[in-house]
Amino acid sequence: MLRLPQFTLERPTTIEEAIQLVADANGRGRFLAGGTDLIPNLKHEFIEADVVVALGGIEALRGIEVTAEGGLSIGPLTSLVDIAESADVQRIAPALAQAVGTIAGPQHRQMGTIGGNVMLDTRCQWINQSHFWRSSLGFCLKKDGSACHVVEGGKRCVAAASNDSAPALATLAATLDFQKAPTEYGNGKRTLAFDELFKADGAWNKKVSADELLTRIHIPATPVGHKGGYAKLRMRGSIDFPLLGVAARLDVDGEGVIEHADIVVIALQARPLRVRKASALLVGAKLGAASYDDALAAVMVAAYEQCHPLPNIPGDHEWRQEMVPIYVKRALAAAIA
């Protein structure tokens, strides 16, 4: 049995109420979407909350819409299964549909939301454990302790960003609308480029604070020759978090020549990593031609050199690094398929 600590539960029906309720909790309030991350973390007591604000009653946070420009506007409360199965997402943002389809297991994809996935906490084998387990080992930097069990002498938590949607949304150049309770300094609203969301601190790897509600995810239209793919290393074919996740984007012209390429990797450190040097090697290569095969070989080597998995999540980290080129290749193959 793993009981939840006590808290007050609020069930607002509007965005304004929800953000005010979390603001009023003075740093001790949390938004609850599908709960598939927050509930285990509360049970493990490395996240604490006096007030839990359930978002389920806020209709304005749901839905997938195709914009006039041909992009996507996605409500954060949309379930993972609805994202993965949406024909519009599959067409406009194939890497996102593929990535979300690999998240956890069927029950989690039914309950879990895309907003909760964007805002997912980082993972580390020394923190995603019960309070008893952590107290026996000795607490760590992320919660209640002063040492890191991953990096000896480390001063900053390096728990791994593990949200499968993140690298896909990064390659899609998504933007995120956030809203918090208005103050005398402003209306509380801001929009961030997806790349700006994360920082390199596993204790809290977001540049927004926990009282800022993600209200919309925007994905700009993708060109006709857009291809996107996702490949995920995990122990089992279901349930498991990524041990490595790679999203690849290729925009090709009418002749199959790559005009734009992007590769973003997850489950390394606290933030997703764009392997810019690697993806740049693909530009100008032609799909199906020898130039592509040559570029691919070079990309695999470059990605290997840029990615440095740590012993933060399960799976030997040197093995995970050896898998980088393989999964870069698979992500590109998934994009082209």
């Binding site: 069930r11 509930i39 069927p106």
Partner: peptide, 19 residues
């Protein structure tokens, strides 16, 4: 702990009763 909620399999250990 799987139960069907509105016909869909979900995990009752992660759902607040109130929800």
């Amino acid at each position: 702990c799987t139960v069907l909620i509105d016909g869909k399999p979900q995990l009752s250990c992660l759902i607040l009763a109130a929800n």
